[in-house]
């Protein structure tokens, strides 16, 4: 238990990942869903970096670069999502995603 290894990080990432999935499924607030997505992306990033560190060789750089890209993508995604949320709110006066079917098809 004391020696921290790859599995520790993977288990932690799994917990965060599942918490994110739970939020995405159960939240009705669009921003809550967005927060769930952020959690999932973070879990993935932990995996990348942990694998990078514990796989030896030169993989650490690759892992960190990919994690960096993920962070950038997450930020971009958040910007667009928040813009969509405000637009959604403007049109429907709520950000309850269950009422979003009004705009479909």
């Amino acid at each position: 238990m004391l020696e921290i290894g790859l599995n520790h990080y993977l288990v932690l990432a799994a917990i965060i990942f599942c918490a994110g999935v739970f939020s995405m499924v159960s939240k009705r607030n669009a921003i809550g869903v967005l927060i769930g997505v952020e959690l999932v992306l973070n879990a993935v990033n932990i995996n990348f970096v942990a694998f990078g560190k514990y796989s030896g060789g030169n993989t650490s750089i690759d892992a960190q670069v990919i994690a960096l890209f993920v962070i950038v993508l997450a930020a971009a995604e958040a910007a667009v999502a928040v813009a969509i949320c405000t637009n959604y709110y403007r049109n429907l006066n709520t950000i309850d995603i269950d009422r979003g079917d009004a705009v479909s098809g």
């Binding site: 669009a30 921003i31 967005l34 927060i35 958040a78 928040v82 949320c85 405000t86 950000i95």
Partner: peptide, 9 residues
Amino acid sequence: LLIFGVMLT
């Protein structure tokens, strides 16, 4: 950004 979104909506 998120908190901003929350405040706006």
